[in-house]
Amino acid sequence: MSSSPPPAAPATAPQAAVESPEVARQGTQKLLKYLVIAVPYLWLLAFFLAPFLIVLKISLVEVRVAMPPYSELITFVEDGWIAFHGSLENYLWLWDDPLYINSYLSSLKIAATSTVLTLLVGYPIAYGMARAPRRWRFALLMLVILPFWTSFLIRVYAWIGILKKEGLLNLALTHLGLISEPLTILNTDIAVYIGIVYSYLPFMVLPLYANLEKMDLSLLEAAADLGCRPIKAFWVVTVPLSMTGIVAGCFLVFIPAVGEFVIPDLLGGSETLMIGKTLWTEFFNNRDWPVSSAVAVILLLVLIIPIVLFQRQQQRSAEAEA
């Protein structure tokens, strides 16, 4: 039986002497562990967190004609005193000048609209892939993933030749007799929508496909058996079950689209306002580093809500699977 009483505490003195090399070896293991943690940790602190804190700092100071082109936040004056020169002036400036607020709002609007469009384009593709015979699926998946690997810039560039006034789309439409005057698409918001849908389509299709592929098809048979027509079954069974895929796909498109620079710059017009482009202009053309830092800080604040929501949703679906 298990009723034996615990033995007296083992004599420790001689054992401790024997154990010391073992303890030393365990110390080495521990050191190794902390070393493995330290290398990437310090790297990210130095090249991710520190830079961001610098952005925060510079957003509080003034622009100056010098190198670097901004004033100091903290200066050391005599007697060990330090002087703090920060102000929220740059942020007030963003509030006063309608350009910035309009850029933020317009970015959100463009990102939201193109997310919906991407969903509308992506869902049928993902659905078709998930219902395709098993032996096709790998090839179809590769076809979706491949553009994701090829250069973003090149894929956006490819659309310029198509959407231009004398481009291939207008050429084709005129040939077919559908239009008499060439359409102006390039350098409008429509071109930006097309660019975003095109560039981010794999981000929408992949989570949707992963979700739809897992779906138990006998659920649809059960629905049919209970008298539900296929189209209705799609809306009341398939769509609700693929909700996690839809939400994940939408976040994956919306979040990067808000801060997009290349697409509005190459495909959009001068009146297309997007915050990424505004930041770029502020930095490279106006050389106002403090204001562009303030723009960056606000952009991040705007994005934090969807990012946090997205992470929550990911966590929840991971938990639901476990």
């Binding site: 610098i54 990067p256 562009s292």
Partner: peptide, 12 residues
């Protein structure tokens, strides 16, 4: 957003 990553690294 890449613009933020780029800007912050440059400033550092």
């Amino acid at each position: 957003p890449e613009v933020i990553t780029g800007l912050s690294l440059l400033l550092m």
